[in-house]
Design a binder for these strands. Structure first.
Lengths: 210, 210
DNA sequence: CCTGAAATACCGGTTTTCATGGAGAAATGC
DNA sequence: GCATTTCTCCATGAAAACCGGTATTTCAGG
């Protein structure tokens, strides 16, 4: 019950994890949890009429809108510190998060102590990144740096391909010619830097498109 | 500090979730957490010299050894009640769990209250299954009932296919003829009930083989 | 020793994908 | 309104995948 507690909010849709974070935060003397939301939208709504010092943001799928949400939240609340919580260790995801407003990036298997410490580090205007992740980020393996940006049509075709549909089937389903479908699929393979559909699907799943 | 608390142990490798479960359990008067382990093996070791009333078992990937572990733990500790915790809603996974010793099956997004209630239900020799899951289990869609059983070789080839290797490439890598590889791939597609590699990879990922 | 499962291999034929390269129309964004 | 993306379509040939059988070897378990 200290007079000036720092306010933490959470965006996370698994209540067990919320419970875990909540317990960790409330056990820290200087922190208090002032909100838990299952979507970033709800959190933004909350921030319209309230303030907070730090946001723990769950990033479930790298390709989803989470990263975009992070950018938006930060844009509207410049003072709010954001820590991304995720399981993904792909360089591109980390990069994307950190260039989109996150002040820190933690893996979900972080220990209690690491989490608390990180929160304070970030509040102290420091930038945090687990050593495990620094390795990924600064390793010399010069692999793909960013997630591909897919067009609507490409996403549509990706989904159909993943369901096992052949080019011809997709074409007739979408009322376009199979050449068009081929083109899209080719572009998909190019964007994902693979050379066949099997690898395409695997990479797409890994990166959260499926 | 009631005299006879029921002892709960956890198998779960994400410390934040452990924290959440721990907090939930310790807040229930009649329960106490007496151990948290990141693997089922460790839990079994613990059970050699200790007892427990209930085990919350994390099932991360349906095709992994988790289900087998459940069976083993139950075999060795018949009195121990096991609740599986997972994100998977596939009928086959639920089936597998419940026929391998689990006394209940909860989704990871279960609420605090549901979890507590379920624990007591199970301790009361009831069998628990969320209504959401009952629907899946007893719905009339007569789709695939069990995960396919893959041979060692098939797993090997599945992995290589997912990496984008062509039949010829796989063949030369494994020092077998490409006809053999074709056969294995065909068997894989049959087992997964799909008709091309793209769908094969997707289904394999979904079911935890990749 | 026998059986069954697994791994290996082959044939012949059809379908589908993959790689190239180009190109016009439509929508989107500034 | 202009530029850039995006979506559309085309042709061709080689490569790979898919299909439906069949069959031999190997090896562990009963």
């Amino acid at each position: 019950m200290a007079p000036f507690k720092l306010s933490v909010i959470i965006v996370e849709d698994h209540s067990i994890i919320v419970e875990g974070l909540s317990s960790i935060i409330n056990n820290a003397d200087e922190l208090e949890l002032s909100g838990a939301f299952s979507t970033a939208e709800e959190a933004m709504e909350f921030l319209e009429t309230n303030t907070a010092d730090i946001l723990l943001l769950d990033i479930s799928l790298p390709a989803m809108s989470d990263i975009e949400m992070c950018r938006l939240v930060k844009q509207k609340n410049k003072k709010l510190k954001i820590i991304a919580l995720t399981n993904h260790t792909e360089r591109s995801v980390i990069n994307d998060m950190l260039t989109n407003g996150a002040d820190g990036y933690l893996l979900k298997n972080t220990s209690k102590n690491d989490l608390i410490e990180s929160i304070f580090q970030v509040l102290d205007n420091k930038f945090i990144l687990q050593s495990e992740l620094q390795k990924v980020l600064f390793s010399n393996t010069q692999t793909s740096n960013t997630l591909p940006r897919l067009t609507t049509r490409e996403k549509e075709i990706l989904l159909l391909v993943s369901n096992g549909a052949t080019t011809a089937a997709i074409a007739s389903q979408l009322y376009i010619s199979s050449q068009t479908v081929e083109t899209h699929r080719r572009n998909l393979m190019q964007k994902f830097e693979v050379n066949n559909s099997a690898a395409l699907i695997k990479k797409a799943v890994e990166q959260g498109f499926l």
